[in-house]
């Protein structure tokens, strides 16, 4: 809790909205390439440009948007689509739980505003900033979130409009931008821990990899992501005495 107190005390050095916008830039390639792909998939699932735009603005979740399109095409009942979307996005609960303690001094509305736009990427950039003890503020988080949100909607729209002419975005390796970003975020997280504890953290990563490989044979991968994260975080608490 000491860290939180420090954040509150260093009021004058709090990161600005503009800094948040700048910190979003490295993640934009990911949003743009995946957004365009999501737009293309939407258009090829017979959604209109308006529907694709609404979907990206209101649901704002890459993986879910792909799955929603696939389920719409297959004619799934609305209950199935809603339930699947809920499960796919359940990991946001974990992300928000981890971020929320750093924003308790702000108003409820500000907190809801931040929470509404949390993504894997914005979470990653924010938690990395927190780990570096660079200070955290609602303005910074909003700068990061809103920039990502705008680029996401525009990219999805662009994908829906020009989708027919961009034959295969995967050929350029753009879809890998997300994985590359998670790799960098993982490395940056490890860099910020005590070097003496590195071995412990590496062992947790090995557990996650093994659990993912086993669980993916039994459940859909979005469920495996949540389960392996919860299980290994618990192992972490138990083993870390």
């Amino acid at each position: 809790m000491n860290e939180l107190a420090n954040e509150i005390n260093s009021e004058e050095t709090l990161p600005t909205y503009l800094q948040g916008v700048k910190d979003c830039i490295p993640t934009l390639i990911g949003y743009i390439s995946i957004g365009i792909a999501a737009g293309i998939v939407g258009a090829s699932s017979n959604l209109s440009i308006l529907e694709v735009t609404l979907l990206s603005a209101l649901v704002y979740a890459g993986a879910s948007q792909f799955i929603i399109c696939a389920l719409l095409v297959s004619g799934s009942p609305i209950s199935v689509i809603l339930f699947t979307t809920f499960i796919v996005n359940l990991r946001n609960l974990l992300l928000s739980m981890t971020l929320a303690p750093h924003f308790t001094k702000y108003s409820l509305m500000k907190n809801i505003g931040i929470g509404a736009l949390v993504t894997d990427e914005s979470f990653g950039v924010a938690i990395n900033k927190i780990a570096k003890k660079e200070g955290m503020s609602a303005q910074w988080m909003n700068g990061l979130n809103v920039t990502a949100y705008i680029f996401w909607i525009l990219s999805c729209m662009l994908g829906a409009i020009f989708g027919k002419w961009i034959s295969n975005p995967e050929a350029f390796g753009l879809d890998f931008s997300l994985t590359a970003m998670f790799l960098a975020l993982l490395v940056l997280q490890l860099q910020n821990i005590d070097q003496g504890r590195l071995k412990f953290y590496l062992s947790l990563i090995v557990y996650v990899v093994l659990l993912m490989l086993v669980l993916c044979m039994l459940v859909p991968s979005y469920v495996a992501i949540i389960l392996s994260t919860i299980i290994v975080a618990t192992i972490g608490v138990v083993k870390d005495k």
Partner: peptide, 12 residues
């Protein structure tokens, strides 16, 4: 959570 979820997303 951060380290676990990044590792899981990479495996995914």
């Amino acid at each position: 959570i951060p380290i676990c979820i990044f590792a899981a997303l990479i495996v995914d």
